[in-house]
Amino acid sequence: MDAHYFFPPAAAFPLNRFLFALKSDAAVRARYAKDGEATMREHGLDDATRAALATFDRERLVGLGAHPYLVFMAQVRLTMDREPTTFEYF
């Protein structure tokens, strides 16, 4: 069995760079929320990658070489922006 956290394939670098930006850059998240398709095109993502991101399908994204943790935390940060009142801050 492959490792849960596998070596990131070079071909998936644009996808991983985009997920990293979604996770760590509030400006990219805001732009993505406003115009997802344009933001993904600006980041050089191909058709299959954009389609997988449109539904944020974990299995498809990981199948394309996305780092599982980046998928996870990008989604958490997008949800925190979208539904801020559902979170309790300590």
Binding site: V76, T79, M80, T86, F87, E88, Y89, F90
Partner: peptide, 13 residues
């Protein structure tokens, strides 16, 4: 784990 800091409703308070 960040859910200790920012708790979503999925986490047992």
């Amino acid at each position: 784990t960040p859910q200790l800091l920012v708790r979503p409703p999925t986490e047992d308070r």
